[in-house]
Write a protein that binds this DNA or RNA. Structure first.
Lengths: 142, 142
DNA sequence: GTCTAATAGTTGTACATACAAATAAAACCC
DNA sequence: GGGTTTTATTTGTATGTACAACTATTAGAC
């Protein structure tokens, strides 16, 4: 059944969740090659890009709760992809050599993912849509 | 931090999830008055509207996996809001009198939720946006 | 300088959701 | 009509996410 045929196709709650689930599935497939969930991958990429970032900053950029970042880092640390060093109340997160090694493959997954949905949705249209979505999300407040 | 300032504000995965989380939060607040999560509420409303529906149909309309519907029903049954009757391999789901009793309050929550986000996002614009979102979701396939 | 308040981070717990496997019933085939 | 395949539903298990409570550290007030 298509989303447009659903009884709730006019409801923002239903439609935004349905979209997110579908996109998530697509993303999961794209990152299966590196054995990471999309959120873990995005977090890892951020850490590689900005070594020494603090969890709070990461949480802000990824728009997740600090506790969620903790949980994601737990797993990345277990996989020896990041290390945390605490000094005082601040924590710095660094990528391991192993993480830097797989960076090319991470980027591959990313562009494959982008390519896949751009193809399905149309590059231009998709760009506009994402932009619109961001605008809406921002309006909804903190 | 606003979504538009995030490092990933151009990425469909990130933006659709960020939107869904925010909308979900708004929805959760709206349904707190009846002590239900949004998904439980939507499922219950469907059952009230269409008594005797089968889980499979409900799953299709809500775009969730059958197993998820099972889990949601579990809780609604525990709260004595629905009952399930199985005949053969089919299951029929019915609302209890208690569910019908709170229907007015459910509808209140729904229209309060609609009102709230329509006010924030703009009624017209929001309508267009939701429509667009559904189009995109449908394109992403089954 | 001490005491209080704010801040950063983690942990306990809960929840919605999904996938895969299990069950059970129905439909189909010959 | 007996055996096989398909279908509907439920469980076992795992995962991402959040909130609330907790710890530990820093900043501010006086």
């Amino acid at each position: 059944m298509k989303t447009s045929d659903s009884r709730y196709s006019k409801c923002l709650y239903f439609t935004s969740n349905a979209l997110a689930r579908k996109v998530d599935k697509l993303a999961q497939e794209s990152w299966k090659k590196v054995n990471l969930s999309p959120s873990h991958a995005y977090l890892l990429m951020m850490v590689i890009e900005e070594p020494g970032s603090q969890p709070k900053i990461l949480a802000e950029h990824l728009q997740l709760q600090p506790s969620t970042i903790s949980r994601l880092m737990e797993k990345l640390e277990l996989k020896k992809l990041i290390i945390r060093t605490t000094e005082g109340k601040l924590t710095n997160v660094y990528p391991t050599p192993k993480a830097k090694e797989i960076l090319p493959r991470l980027n591959e997954c990313l562009s494959e993912f982008y390519g896949r949905y751009a193809e399905i949705l149309g590059k231009e249209e998709c760009g506009r849509f994402v932009h619109n979505m961001v605008k809406m999300t921002d309006k909804l407040g903190p």
